[in-house]
Amino acid sequence: MESALSVEHVSVSLGGEWILHDISFEVRRGEMVSIIGPNGAGKSTLMKVLLGVLQPSRGRITVHLPPAAKNRSRSIGYVPQSRQMDVDTSLRAWDFVSFGLPHTLRPWLNRKERSRVREALELTRCEELANQAISRLSGGQRQRLYLAQALVRNPDLLLLDEPTSNLDPGGQEMVVELVNQIRQERGTTVLLVTHDMHIAAKYSDRILYLTRGRYAIGRVEDIVRPDVLTTLYGAPMTGIHEETHTTAVPSRTSSMPYLEV
């Protein structure tokens, strides 16, 4: 399958500390890769580097644009981890989504742009929210709007930085299910940062497991294994697979109780 993104020997140093060290991987077009790992592992830093807002200290990133794509920034949609918005601002959802359109010197939206905003709202099931103030929406509805803003420029690559972090389990499942549907319908390549191993296992083709200084990429059953996790964390770890849940936990040690499952 055609490559959508190549990351070659990328290292990032911030404040004299290596946040990412010699990371290489490739993402195929239409693939969904979840990036998981503990806090401080460099997941959001990797997102910023892929987005181009942070330059890697070493290595190279290539976004393979399809022939129709105009430029890199228009081909990437991004949903950041947190939004610095005044909760009292009564901004309507339609305006918020239209912000994501490519910028021109023309202040008004033409017919094509209006239809793209409508399409993004429909795709994320937000049509009925178009004239609602963002301040009155629930966390799940806002998250769908953030997704709509990222989709309005019809990106080939979608970067989602913990899009479900403030949602209840039902809301998390709904947002990722929606992302998965959009990916299947449009062939969009998706990189999803999440803490939820269950979501990563259920929806992703592969997972990129990052820990401080180490990483592994592969199918979930290949990564969530005692030998791989122990290498990643540098301490005895094991994976727990249940029907509805997959997680990495410390292995039995003399000081730590271990729950058999």
């Binding site: 987005l51 181009g52 807002v53 920034s73 991004y78 950041p80 947190s82 939004r83 610095q84 918005m85 601002t89 901004l91 305006d95 918020f96 912000f99 994501g100 359109l101 910028h103 021109t104 010197l105 023309r106 202040p107 953030y146 803003q149």
Partner: peptide, 19 residues
């Protein structure tokens, strides 16, 4: 500058992410 200024004023994180 209406579009860029409006995006940056109402959603600064989104504007920075959009380049």
């Amino acid at each position: 500058g209406y579009r860029m200024l409006t995006f940056d004023s109402f959603d600064p994180v989104g504007a920075e992410s959009a380049g």
